[in-house]
């Protein structure tokens, strides 16, 4: 009769041999699983990248879609705005941490939700105030600098957010893909000094504009861009223009 493995020193060697074989097989199996997982991860990542690139135009043009996309990213915790770990793939690409991403989402949130009333331009201090309120932190915790940096890191996503200097050290954030011409920037700056109201006469007197130039700039903002509102019951000037992004709103 032949005993499995036999007896003696040779049998001991043979047993060792089979142990090794099993160990090899087992590590091969787990390696296959890891590889499989890697492949799935790569596929997921490329699908996400594909989605981002194919819908880039849409994301850029349609604010509601953009908002929804960014929300989705946050809720599944994969991509740009709230990656689950530091130094992930998106973080490498964009170079910021989770905190900055979240701030970015909240900036988008405030810009989108106030767009109807301000035409897509919001004053920096107002934005900082509203973002702070959203985060439930006291004023001063979030600075203009944080907001500027967050907006910069949103750039690779093609969101089209931009910080504009309107003079006198005042900044505004634009969330619509629209060129703001020089005259409009001046109108914004002047309106900001007056609590949001602006009339042709102010631009003539303080900026030396002709009446036609002032009227053209204001009417364009009113009719073409929806960046200001008209008040036809102004007791002094008859017709005045109100720039909602420069008006002080108390909630």
């Amino acid at each position: 009769m032949h005993r499995l493995g036999g007896v003696g020193l040779a049998a001991f060697d043979r047993q060792q041999q089979s142990h090794r074989s099993f160990a090899e097989l087992s590590s091969e199996l787990s390696k296959a699983q890891v590889d499989h997982l890697q492949i799935q991860l790569t596929q997921f990542r490329s699908a996400l990248t594909h989605f981002a690139t194919t819908h880039r135009e849409h994301i850029k043009k349609d604010p509601a879609f953009r908002h929804a996309f960014q929300r989705m990213c946050v809720s599944i915790g994969v991509d740009p705005l709230a990656g689950p770990r530091k130094g992930g793939w998106w973080a490498e690409m964009l170079g910021i941490g989770d905190w900055q991403y979240e701030l970015g989402v909240q900036i988008v949130d405030v810009c989108v939700s106030t767009r109807e009333r301000n035409g897509g331009i919001i004053e920096m201090s107002e934005l900082v105030r509203m973002v702070s309120k959203l985060r439930g932190v006291e004023s001063g915790v979030i600075t203009e600098d944080d907001v500027v940096r967050s907006i910069k890191t949103l750039e690779p996503l093609g969101a089209g957010y931009e910080v504009i200097n309107v003079g006198n050290g005042r900044k505004m954030v634009r969330s619509v893909v629209k060129e703001l011409d020089e005259d409009q920037a001046i109108v914004l700056a002047e309106a900001a000094l007056e609590g949001g109201v602006i009339v042709e006469g102010t631009l003539e007197r303080k900026r030396g504009w002709t009446r036609e130039r002032a009227r053209a700039a204001l009417e364009n903002m009113l009719l073409r861009d929806g960046l200001c509102w008209v008040d036809e019951q102004d007791p002094v000037h008859g017709r005045s223009y109100w720039v909602p992004s420069a008006m002080r709103w108390e909630e």
Binding site: E116, R117, V197, L222, L223, G226, W229, V230, D231, E232, Q233, D234, S240, W242, P244, M247, W249, E250, E251
Partner: peptide, 21 residues
């Protein structure tokens, strides 16, 4: 609401999107 204290709220706006709002 605070919009009620904004003077232009009482003028019919020529921009259709603004007026819809």
């Amino acid at each position: 609401p605070s919009i009620h204290s904004a003077p232009p709220f009482f003028t019919e706006q020529p921009n259709p999107r603004t007026q819809a709002q």
